[in-house]
Simulated assay, not measured.
Amino acid sequence: MERQPTLETERLVLRPLAETDREALFGIASDPAVWEQHPIHDRWRRDVFDAFFDEGLASGGALAVCDRRDERMLGMTRFDRFDPDEGGVVEIGWTFLAPRCWGKGYNPEMKRAMLAHAFAHVALVEFRVGDTNYRSRNALEAIGAARTTRYELGRYQGKRVVHLVYEIDRESHQQGPLA
């Protein structure tokens, strides 16, 4: 599966992330509201954002999210963990959008394109989201993702971090809200 495709929708272009996107994305990410519910709540800080951005570049699956009309940067997302076995599974996540995009259908539009691309190659898509990130949890449920009983534990700044695992399989997607 190509994890850095160029995908186009009515309003968006998702394209491979480039080093030249760093400053425009930091302009969005430097707003603390973007991260207020996220377990890594201080990605608005330059050093924390730069590490996040560098990780995205190194992942081989990060995408810049741009306005199709004027190519203005709107955010970032990623196809991450990919396993081709047993029909295949890929993770979609690491997404953030500019607050001006919230509540205007940009996330479902982006996820529709990403899911269509993924389901041409895999049978299952997973999402990991911080347990207190209700904005992202609600957005996942709105696109038809179901919370599983699985979760992952980590630590950040000496505190426990819980990531819940959501998923959508190909059949559910074909019958779900983004079909």
Rank of each mutant, 00 (worst) to 15 (best):
Y151F: 13
A123H: 01
A139R: 05
R100G: 11
L124N: 10
S136G: 07
A139V: 03
A139E: 09
R150S: 14
D131I: 09
V161K: 04
F119G: 10
P108G: 11
R100E: 08
L153R: 14
K104L: 10
R147C: 03
R100W: 03
I143W: 03
A98D: 15
A116C: 03
G103P: 00
F127M: 13
M110K: 10
G105A: 04
A113D: 08
N138C: 06
V162T: 15
Y166N: 06
N138F: 03
T149E: 13
H163T: 04
N138S: 10
R147E: 00
N133P: 14
Q157C: 11
K104N: 02
H163D: 13
F119H: 13
E109D: 06
G105D: 04
E141A: 15
V162A: 09
R112V: 00
M114P: 03
G103D: 03
E141H: 11
G103V: 01
L115E: 15
A123E: 06
A146S: 10
L115F: 15
A142V: 07
H121E: 13
N107I: 04
N107D: 07
M114S: 00
M114A: 01
A113L: 12
E109K: 00
G158D: 06
Y134L: 15
L115K: 05
T132Q: 13
G154M: 10
W102A: 03
V161R: 09
H121Y: 06
V165M: 14
E109P: 01
T132R: 06
P108L: 04
G154Y: 09
V165L: 15
P108A: 13
G105W: 14
H121S: 14
G154L: 08
E126D: 05
G130E: 11
P108Y: 06
F119L: 07
T149K: 05
R155Y: 02
V122E: 00
A116W: 03
L164T: 07
A120M: 13
H163R: 11
R137H: 00
R137F: 00
G154D: 15
L140D: 00
G130D: 08
K159V: 04
R128K: 15
Y156N: 07
R100N: 05
A142M: 12
T132M: 06
D131Q: 09
A146K: 12
A116E: 13
R155V: 13
P108K: 07
L115S: 10
Y106N: 02
